[in-house]
Simulated scan of single mutants.
Amino acid sequence: MLTIEKFAAIDIGSNAIRLLIATVIEKDGYAPQFKKTSLVRLPIRLGADVFLQGRISEENYKRMLDAMTAFSLIMKNHKVVAYRACATSAMREAKNGNDLAKKLLDTTGVNIQIIDGNDEAAIIASTDLKELIQDNKVFLYVDVGGGSTEFTVFAKGKSVISKSFQLGTVRIINDMIRDTIWDEVKSWIVENTKDYNKLEVIGSGGNINSIYRYSEKKVGKPLSYFFLANFYEKVKDLTYHERIFELQMNPDRADVIVPATRIYLSAMKWSKAKNIYVPKIGLADGIVKQLYNERKANTLEVK
């Protein structure tokens, strides 16, 4: 006998807004299966508003309103049993972020939680990342977003230290990065990885997933520093339109891919990592796992 339920996660980032619907299949005596049933991505670049003007524009609020209305209908159609919507750097820093979240709740019924960088890292850590992190290895986890990048050091299978920096791709292309930020990130990485040998990097985010698809590597195989460095030199030398046409990138990926690659490369260089692993995980996957675990805990309590 199988139990089949659907859960949904809404990830409101600085570069895009995503709706993930996952089907969870349970059978007694077996681990639950998580299957991605639907993924909708909308390139509503909230960070371009917030990092330049300090608030979300009326135009982008209307786009968010349309998105949340559509997401609500999609979740209803899929008969989702539980959902969670989390907003990160852009809405967190927007002067009108909380007010717009309340307006969207009143008009669409979608409740948006604005979370900080530590919450974001903790949610992602609850994903299948745990299956990749082995007790006998050390990893630097790097999650590059539009507004911020989260770094976490894992050793002996556990998180040792985490930090979020306002170093994001949308900030970089809009020249909104403090002069000292790269030095701060370098110092943090060097200080927190210097005592480990043979450290490797785990990368997450839409940009590294795009690079991984371009590499045509077999699933589970890492990208080398050499490959990533060559890729960086190639995309850096192409124009925005050449990236769209020759590399067949989406327009909202073709501009942020360069700063994103630079962040991953820098993290590998400063931690002396030779490889970067690219599991297909992100905030939305972590939200689904949390929702499922909470539902199971509540069911056990009722019994």
Rank of each mutant, 00 (worst) to 15 (best):
47 G>T: 08
294 E>A: 10
142 V>G: 06
264 Y>T: 02
225 Y>C: 00
90 A>L: 06
215 S>W: 09
110 V>I: 15
247 L>T: 02
115 I>Y: 10
257 I>K: 00
37 T>F: 10
282 G>S: 00
94 A>R: 08
291 L>Y: 04
141 Y>P: 01
244 I>V: 08
75 M>F: 08
215 S>R: 06
111 N>D: 15
249 M>T: 08
164 S>I: 09
198 K>W: 06
234 K>M: 14
72 S>C: 07
41 R>V: 13
3 T>E: 13
173 I>M: 11
286 G>R: 06
197 N>R: 05
197 N>I: 04
66 D>Q: 06
290 Q>Y: 09
106 D>K: 14
138 V>S: 13
99 D>Q: 15
100 L>Q: 10
126 S>H: 10
225 Y>Q: 03
271 S>L: 03
189 I>F: 11
205 G>T: 04
144 V>H: 09
154 F>N: 06
12 I>C: 14
286 G>M: 10
231 F>H: 01
28 D>Y: 07
63 R>V: 03
214 Y>K: 11
209 N>H: 15
243 R>A: 01
187 S>N: 15
9 A>D: 04
174 N>V: 01
117 G>W: 12
7 F>A: 06
119 D>N: 10
16 A>I: 00
113 Q>N: 15
35 K>R: 11
134 Q>P: 05
165 F>L: 01
260 A>K: 00
205 G>R: 00
56 I>P: 11
82 A>W: 11
56 I>F: 12
206 G>W: 01
248 Q>V: 02
232 Y>C: 03
9 A>Q: 04
72 S>A: 14
125 A>Y: 09
49 D>P: 14
33 Q>Y: 13
184 E>A: 04
271 S>Y: 03
192 N>Y: 08
80 V>D: 08
198 K>Y: 07
241 H>C: 00
235 V>T: 10
172 I>R: 04
128 D>Y: 12
63 R>W: 03
187 S>Q: 15
8 A>S: 13
16 A>G: 06
9 A>W: 07
61 Y>R: 03
136 N>R: 10
262 R>V: 13
284 A>K: 13
13 G>L: 12
96 N>T: 03
250 N>Q: 15
291 L>P: 00
125 A>C: 10
89 S>M: 09
280 K>N: 14
15 N>M: 05
117 G>K: 04
192 N>S: 07
258 V>G: 05
91 M>W: 08
184 E>H: 03
285 D>K: 00
281 I>G: 01
174 N>S: 04
120 E>W: 05
294 E>R: 09
284 A>H: 10
221 K>F: 09
156 K>N: 14
169 T>D: 01
196 Y>I: 04
301 E>M: 12
90 A>C: 10
95 K>E: 13
81 V>L: 08
281 I>P: 02
127 T>F: 08
134 Q>E: 15
4 I>T: 15
33 Q>M: 14
143 D>H: 12
181 I>H: 06
36 K>N: 14
75 M>S: 07
221 K>C: 07
121 A>H: 08
238 L>V: 01
243 R>G: 04
126 S>G: 12
84 R>H: 14
99 D>M: 12
82 A>N: 13
301 E>H: 14
260 A>F: 04
118 N>F: 11
